[in-house]
């Protein structure tokens, strides 16, 4: 369902969207079914002169309850188990199991800007040739990245809607996660946790490049934002 609203830009975007489809299908049918019965009952049992309301003694009530309450109850329980299985499997894929990654990026959030430390040509973080950019991140399509997220002051949240990626940055903690971009282009990075008066004005730019353009960028990593020509 999400693919109707937002591109799928990362490897696990598909599994999150399929989970949302699963929930939509299950929950949507229940919603339509119950609202339908609800409005039908309103129409069918509207007050008509000469017709008195019924009185269900315990026997009749039990019979109705058995069919119309206990069975739906069991059905919902069974469907909930399916939804829980879907949710946990997607959660483990995205948040718990980190595959072998090709490169590491260090993302630091602060009051109202993002700092991205790329590994640079030697592909190792923390070396002299690291490329540190403000509000600008360059990644290569198809490469698996490990990100280390930290915050300098308050809570922030690194959110890339196109990748279906969102992780809060907590001061004092380093939270790691992974992503694998599958769609080249320029996308937004947003802050998804209120962080003061500049929360609404701290977007960052994400450049997902094909291998040769990424290599060209590695040669002269001038900040793209400074130059006016969009990619």
């Amino acid at each position: 369902m999400l693919d109707l609203f937002m591109l799928q830009g990362s490897s696990f975007a598909g599994s999150i969207d399929s989970l949302v489809w699963l929930v939509t299908f299950i929950v949507g049918t229940w919603f339509v079914l119950v609202e339908g019965i609800f409005f039908w009952l309103l129409f069918r049992y509207r007050k008509q002169d000469g017709v008195k309301a019924e009185y269900f003694d315990d026997g009749r009530e039990h019979a109705i309850k058995h069919v119309w309450i206990e069975w739906p109850h069991r059905a919902i329980l069974a469907l909930d188990v399916i939804i829980i299985y879907g949710a946990i499997s997607v959660w483990m894929e995205v948040k718990m199991y980190v595959p072998v990654t090709d490169e590491t990026i260090r993302i630091t959030a602060q009051q109202w800007a993002w700092t991205f430390q790329h590994a640079g040509k030697d592909n190792k973080i923390g070396t002299a040739d690291d490329i540190i950019l403000i509000d600008e991140m360059h990644v290569e399509v198809g490469k698996k990245y490990l990100f280390e997220l930290a915050s300098k002051d308050v809570l922030h949240s690194f959110s890339v809607p196109v990748w279906r990626l969102k992780q809060d940055a907590i001061p004092g903690r380093v939270i790691t996660g992974w992503f694998e971009p599958t769609l080249a282009g320029e996308y937004d990075v947003q802050c998804a946790e209120i962080c003061g008066i500049g929360h609404g004005i701290m977007p960052a730019k994400l450049y997902v490049e094909y291998p040769e353009k990424h290599a060209a960028w590695l040669e002269n990593p001038a900040p793209m934002l400074a130059s006016s020509n969009p990619q």
Binding site: S15, I16, V20, V23, V27, I84, G86, W91, A192
Partner: peptide, 26 residues
């Protein structure tokens, strides 16, 4: 009853942790 059903139903998206990754704080 009619409105609350939609409220309750959309809660399942947010309760399932996998989908909440996208939906949280939107």
């Amino acid at each position: 009853i009619a409105e609350f059903l939609l409220g309750g139903v959309t809660g399942i998206y947010l309760g399932s942790s996998g989908a909440d990754i996208y939906f949280h704080d939107t």
